[in-house]
Amino acid sequence: MYDFSYHKPSSLAEAAKALGSAEDGKLMAGGMTLIPTLKQRLARPSDVIDLGGIVELKGIRRAGNALVIGAMARHAEVAHSDVVRSAIPALAELAEGIGDPQVRNRGTIGGSIANADPAADYPAAVVGLGATVETNKRKIAADDFFKGLFETALEDGEIVTAVSFPIPEKAAYMKFPNPASRYAIVGAFVAKTGGGVRVAVTGAGPSVFRVAAMEQALAKSFTPDAIKDIKVAADGLNADIHASAEYRAHLVTVMARRAVAAAAG
């Protein structure tokens, strides 16, 4: 780890200021990705701004027909929150399936989506539920938020404050974990709302994506059989020693089908 200046602001405004005045500042949520990156000397920020002391970023609440989760909510909090469990149980289950207990007790939803790891779970829920990402500057629709591999719509100095999830009629997440890391090789989030059906897939490609053909088929018939023959193309999907692009493409259909079965059942 290289030397850096450490800040622990107690308000969002202070955090924004510290970030703005730093030469090459980095926000830190739970540090679950950031700290390993620093330890491996892959990043050399001038300043690290710890978001852990900012009350505005904490908490989980119901706001009308939406569930609002503060950026600093830990995965374990989401997994065990009664509010989440009653509003969107699929989201609690997704959070429960992230990493291991240490990671769940440190990692945050804000850190996860800001990082936009192609194999992260939350992006599937954010896009699958058509959530809105709230920052200190604006509100960003899920479909506009994830831009590519480790790439989001966040601008310099922008801090995720919360994610607002519309509450669906039915939803489920099915994950095929990487046996080693337990990140998603393929994760499919399926949600049915008044506005229609969304199918969002993480792990398979460079960034989370929706499967329009499945959404249309499920809008007509919300059953696993409705999508059993819908395949995504392997072209451009991720490939590694654990799963080829072809296998991932196959798993997209399997996981989506199982998610529909779980949501419908």
């Binding site: 080693a180 890391s181 590694d240 020693i241």
Partner: peptide, 8 residues
């Protein structure tokens, strides 16, 4: 497979 991310 140089870390637990890939060595299972």
């Amino acid at each position: 497979t140089g870390s637990y991310m890939d060595y299972c």
